[in-house]
């Protein structure tokens, strides 16, 4: 990381966006994303995620500030910057009346590839994304999850250095989502910088190394996922007993509850271990069959940060 500045995939300074009609979507954003990173941009509805991405890929004109991509200023070298990026937008934006493979091949052409090269690459990607059998049908006839994968194939046709995905797994079922995660992880391993926005906090947790949280057009947290998670003290686990439990024994935890007669919830501090819980329960003849982590810790953090930020904004407005 000695050449950290040069190798940044994205550097955003004091970025502002006011839409026609007066909505201030971005109020001075600062962001740096390293090359090769897997980066999450998180935030509630209307926070400014899609606006930020729109500016990065030249679909939205910024109002103020500057953006550098792989060391190139967006305003100065826009065409070059565009060639480095592949984008999967939040909403479907391909021609629904075109055959599936044509959607991908055309995009390759717009990035300067010959039809032959674009077709070869399109077929590879459609195979990898499980759409090869559908390639000759109309894009309209794909299911929602397939349409999303089609947009991923389209974004990758020119082998971009950076892939930007705006809520790529919205409306995608769990199994396919996992498949998509594996796919993206693999691409990231091959060196492609990935930025994604998501509402599924577990998704950011599972995939991303670094994260920024945006709220009302401001970055409220910009950190590594590890540091962020370390900030959190408490976790809640749900335990499922094999047989009905009458009452809960004292356990070495922060809190515990009986949800129904076979379901127990326990809250643990980071220094407390689940083994302690199991030992006590076994001592009382309670056998745990299954368990799961209940809170997404990120969710908890997210709520806290956003609330703090809202409070700060309110205080600012009052003064």
């Amino acid at each position: 990381m000695s050449n950290a500045v040069e190798s940044n995939a994205v550097e955003i300074y004091e970025l502002e966006k006011t839409y026609e009609g007066g909505t201030r979507a971005l109020k001075g954003i600062e962001l740096a994303i390293a090359e090769g990173d897997f980066f999450a941009l998180l935030g509630p509805n209307g926070a400014g995620k899609s606006t930020t991405i729109g500016i990065l890929c030249s679909l939205v004109n910024k109002t103020a500030g500057s953006v550098r991509v792989f060391g190139h200023d967006l305003d100065r070298d826009r065409a070059w910057v565009k060639a480095q990026i592949g984008v999967v937008p939040q909403e479907f934006n391909f021609n629904q009346f075109e055959p599936v493979e044509e959607v991908v091949i055309n995009q390759g052409g717009f990035y300067g590839m010959t039809r032959k090269a674009a077709k070869k690459r399109a077929h590879e990607l459609l195979k990898q994304l499980g759409l090869y059998d559908k390639r000759e049908g109309m894009a309209r006839a794909l299911s929602g999850g397939m349409k999303r994968r089609l947009m991923i194939a389209r974004a990758l046709v020119h082998d971009p250095r950076m892939l930007i995905l705006d809520e790529p797994t919205a409306g995608v079922d769990i199994e396919l989502r996992r498949g998509m995660w594996d796919f993206l992880t693999q691409i990231n391993k091959q060196g492609t910088t990935i930025i994604l926005t998501t509402h599924y906090l577990e998704e950011a947790e599972a995939l991303c190394r670094n994260i920024a949280i945006i709220n009302e057009g401001r970055i409220v947290e910009h950190n590594s996922m590890r540091n962020l998670l370390a900030k959190l003290s408490q976790e809640t686990f749900v335990l499922y007993a094999r047989e009905p439990v009458e009452s809960l024994p004292e356990m070495p935890v922060v809190g515990s509850r009986l949800i129904d007669d076979e379901t127990i919830e326990v809250d643990l501090n980071r220094d407390q271990e689940l083994t302690g819980v199991f030992d006590v329960l076994r001592g009382h003849g309670i056998v745990i069959e299954r368990m799961k982590n209940k809170t997404s810790r990120l969710e908890e953090l997210f709520l806290r940060l956003v609330q703090d930020d809202d409070a700060a904004i309110n205080a600012e407005e009052r003064s």
Binding site: F70, H72, D77, W80, G109, F110, G112, M113, T114, R115
Partner: peptide, 28 residues
């Protein structure tokens, strides 16, 4: 890929080469 260049900072950065532009035109 010769459709567009991936030059580093400092060098002249273009989007499409003339060949790439021609391919893009044909595709459209």
């Amino acid at each position: 890929s010769d459709a567009f260049d991936h030059q580093g900072p400092g060098e002249k950065a273009v989007g499409l080469t003339p060949r790439g532009a021609w391919n893009a035109f044909l595709m459209l």
